[in-house]
Amino acid sequence: MGTPNILLTRIDNRLVHGQVGVTWVNYLGANLLIVANDEVAHDEVRQSLMDMVVSDTVGMRYFTLQKTIDIISKASPRQKIFLVLKTPEDVLVLKQGGVPISYVNVGNMHFEEGKNQITSTVSVDDEDIAAFHKLNELGVTCEIQGVPGEHAKNIMELI
């Protein structure tokens, strides 16, 4: 079991869109984008829509959370991985499953009923807050940052 070359782990409830598939991929120099999401792993229509956003020089993989846990350690060192998840709870599942995540970029968590807005792009509920606290206890730094160059804010100071 090797240590995968994870360049960045991002929470974005939109998963792959222009900001992720172009701006962040280019900034990071990633050559593999992994979407770890149980629903999207089985939804070819959503996968093909996300594939259209990303350059064909970047590999795209859509795995369930469990498959990500099971195979990420088998990644080649040449694979520069950008890992995208939908929720902090999903990140916690991966972390507790042994995926070596030490830093999380929090991009977008849209406002919806039952959530409190803490920045213009991030809204959280009690489950999200509990997951962020647990990630913090596990040594994972979580910072809100929409795009490279924007000032990052530690989420623990906001929740």
Rank of each mutant, 00 (worst) to 15 (best):
V22M: 11
F132T: 01
N5H: 04
G107N: 06
I6F: 00
D126F: 02
R10V: 08
I71Q: 12
V106C: 05
I129L: 03
D70I: 05
W24Y: 10
D56C: 08
L92E: 15
I69S: 09
A152R: 06
I159Y: 05
L32Q: 11
H151V: 02
T87S: 11
P77K: 14
I6M: 10
E150A: 07
I129E: 15
V25P: 08
T119Y: 06
E89N: 04
E44F: 00
E89D: 07
L85D: 08
G149W: 02
V53N: 15
T87P: 00
L8N: 03
N31H: 11
N37K: 08
A152G: 01
L94A: 01
L7M: 06
G29I: 13
I34H: 05
G114W: 06
I81W: 11
L158V: 03
I101N: 04
S73D: 15
G2T: 00
Q117E: 03
D12T: 00
E137C: 01
Q79A: 07
P77A: 09
G146A: 10
D51I: 07
E44N: 09
G18S: 07
I34N: 08
S120D: 03
W24Q: 11
A30G: 13
A75H: 04
G139P: 01
S55A: 15
L8Q: 13
R14E: 10
N136K: 10
V54D: 13
W24S: 13
V53Y: 06
N31R: 14
S73L: 09
T87D: 13
K80M: 01
S55G: 10
I159V: 07
L85C: 03
L158D: 05
K74S: 12
A36Y: 02
G18D: 11
L8T: 06
I144R: 08
D126T: 01
I69C: 06
D70E: 15
V91A: 04
G29K: 10
L49R: 14
F132K: 12
E113Q: 12
I118L: 06
N5L: 04
F63Q: 13
N31S: 03
T23K: 12
H42T: 12
V84C: 03
D126Y: 05
L65K: 15
E112F: 03
N13Y: 04
I129T: 06
V58W: 11
F82E: 12
Q79M: 12
E137K: 05
N5P: 08
V45R: 12
V122W: 02
A30V: 10
G21F: 07
M52L: 15
I71S: 14
I69T: 10
A36V: 12
I101E: 11
V93L: 14
P77R: 13
N105Y: 00
P100T: 11
V25S: 05
A41C: 11
T121I: 06
T3C: 00
V54M: 15
E112A: 03
V140G: 01
G146D: 11
G149I: 07
R46W: 07
E157M: 02
K74P: 00
E157R: 03
V91L: 03
V54C: 12
N116W: 06
E39C: 03
Q117W: 09
S55M: 14
N154H: 11
Y27N: 14
S120G: 01
T121P: 00
I81T: 09
K95Q: 04
V40Y: 09
E137I: 00
T68D: 10
M1S: 15
I155P: 02
M52S: 14
R46F: 00
L28R: 12
N26V: 05
D51Q: 13
L8K: 09
H151M: 09
K86G: 01
H42E: 15
